[in-house]
Design a protein around this nucleic acid. Structure first.
Lengths: 326, 326
DNA sequence: CTGTTAGCGCTTTCAG
DNA sequence: CTGAAAGCGCTAACAG
């Protein structure tokens, strides 16, 4: 009908008719049925965003950025929580819900490259973040090795020599490449500091409690570190709390450095020195990739976009003072 | 077709046929089109969740709880950020997007009762949280006045007499009822403590920065408070940081109390005493209301469910010591 | 400029 | 147990 034209604000409708239709619409309380529109049109205007956990501030902030970026392009976002579950992530990409949304934005928490080689989803897929960089799919990342190296160098430049590292995937023989670990290693190498296995604390997740426990463990060392680089702000907040509980002064006796620049860390006591990724840029690039060049670009193969990061120096790092040993 | 039956796992299909169909499905890489299914079925299995901001930990935690509760009922959630924008919330309820999802879960950040009296959305609507309790729509709340009263009484029982309050909607002549303010007032009344207007600091939002500024303001008072009750943990974190910056010891010289029991406040230095709402219960009740009794219950009118809360005492509150004045 | 005709991909009837 | 027929509410392509 002509009705469809007026509802969609398309040109080529007489002003009089338009008014008439508008009146009827209001009168009858008509609401368009989006499902039907979608069936007919073939697109939904919705994207699926998959993150491991909304409660982790980094993901909450990234989600918020995605929501904003989507709004800028008048799209909606359906948030899916994968709970770090491999099956949930696999399900999404080979997936059942594919034809509901126009694309999938996924933070690969457990997937590896080879998982992506198999069947492709029915809709565009773009990855963002994660410790590994995928070359077989569109992926928006930061340069994790450079970032971790800068962070470690900052600690080195302050005069630290015993610098611990707290993070997940630090197992000695992990097959999953870990850019941040590599950056840390490189910085030590440049500074001619010998790596010590006891200063590498592997944790199961990025949660505060893991940072707390890891720090406790480091305090028990015969020769505790004078600085700790935590692979997320949340981990750093946990470490900070452990220092607080033990009465160790930060940064006086111990320097702590985070990663992510989540707002929480600007208000911790003391505020955290950290690495700040450009979250809005990540979101915008992800959105551009997903709704961008379209099918035509398949020829050019998967694209990797590297976004900026920045070292933000706040109050939790300083030159080493007295030892952290109690 | 019979195909539909096997896809939906319905009975009444010969085992042989089922196998045949399954094989073809796998072979052809068939994916059901959810939009089509929805058009035909009339329901989408999706709910819209509207919160002001995902980056606010309380909302992130509530979202997570909703996501989990929805998963338990095999539903999906579309998250909408209202950004505290009245128009966005109104739009949602009188709404355009109505027929996309099966229901709307809304945190009323700016709406008032009268906004809900007008046109009803085409789908079930349930409200959760907020400072006002709506009686004309299904609403899941906590008893804000009781909670705030308990919080204040805890401070009183410690021996405090000058207890400040930091929060939004504290204007003297606000028309919007504020349960938490009422609870605070009642506790003081019971303790026969005179209310002082200078101890009420009204802030624009629940963000950390507002707590920070409000606290700075209180420090400038000729006679600063010995305790502060912040109407959100985020505000309390800001206040804590202000105390830290000024070198005021918490809880030695100043007690700080929060509201929400967000994980962040368990790791602040010191950890915050706070009011803990049962977020999962809120989520589950909201989901039950929305997909519950259905149309039949319209006769019984809107339901209000009040969920539990709990006072959690941690390290940020203690008996008053030296004055907080610098 | 307006109205008609198909058909999106599924789920329902209801016959075979 | 299986298949054919109709229609969910919309948009697209065309004809009046």
């Amino acid at each position: 009908m002509t009705v469809s034209n007026v509802v969609n604000g398309r040109p080529g409708v007489a002003e009089s008719t338009r008014l008439l239709v508008d009146a009827s619409i209001r009168h009858l309380g008509y609401k368009p049925n989006l499902s039907a529109r979608r069936l007919a049109k073939g697109r939904t205007g919705m994207l699926t965003l998959s993150i491991p956990e909304v409660e982790i501030p980094y993901f909450a902030e990234i989600s918020s950025a995605m929501l904003r970026a989507a709004l800028e392009r008048s799209m909606d976002i359906l948030i899916n929580q994968s709970d770090w579950d491999r099956d949930r992530e696999l399900d999404l990409i080979h997936g059942s819900m594919s034809l509901l949304t126009d694309g999938i934005l996924l933070y690969p928490s457990t997937l590896t490259q080879s998982d992506l080689n198999g069947a492709r989803p029915g809709v565009p897929l773009v990855l963002f973040g994660g410790s590994e960089v995928f070359t077989n799919v569109d992926h928006v990342v930061i340069d994790n090795v450079a970032a971790a190296q800068e962070a470690t160098e900052h600690l080195v430049s302050l005069g630290h020599r015993r610098i611990a590292l707290i993070g997940p995937h630090l197992e000695p023989n992990s097959r999953k490449p870990n850019g941040r670990l590599a950056g840390y290693a490189r910085a030590l190498e440049v500074a001619r500091i010998k790596r010590s296995q006891e200063l590498l604390v592997n944790v199961p997740t990025y949660h505060r409690v893991d940072g707390y426990r890891a720090m406790q463990q480091l305090f028990e060392l015969p020769q505790p570190p004078t600085a700790v680089f935590c692979l997320s702000d949340l981990l750093a907040v946990g470490a900070l709390h452990a220092a607080y509980d033990r009465g160790v002064a930060v940064p006086g006796e111990l320097s702590i450095m985070g990663f992510d620049d989540v707002e929480e860390s600007r208000y911790s006591n003391p505020a955290l020195t950290t690495i700040k990724p450009d979250k809005l840029a990540i979101a915008r690039h992800a959105l551009d990739l997903i709704s961008g060049p379209g099918e035509g670009s398949e020829q050019n193969g998967p694209r990797t976009v590297i976004t900026n990061h920045e070292l933000v120096i706040r109050a939790s790092t300083a030159a080493p003072g007295r030892t952290a040993a109690h």
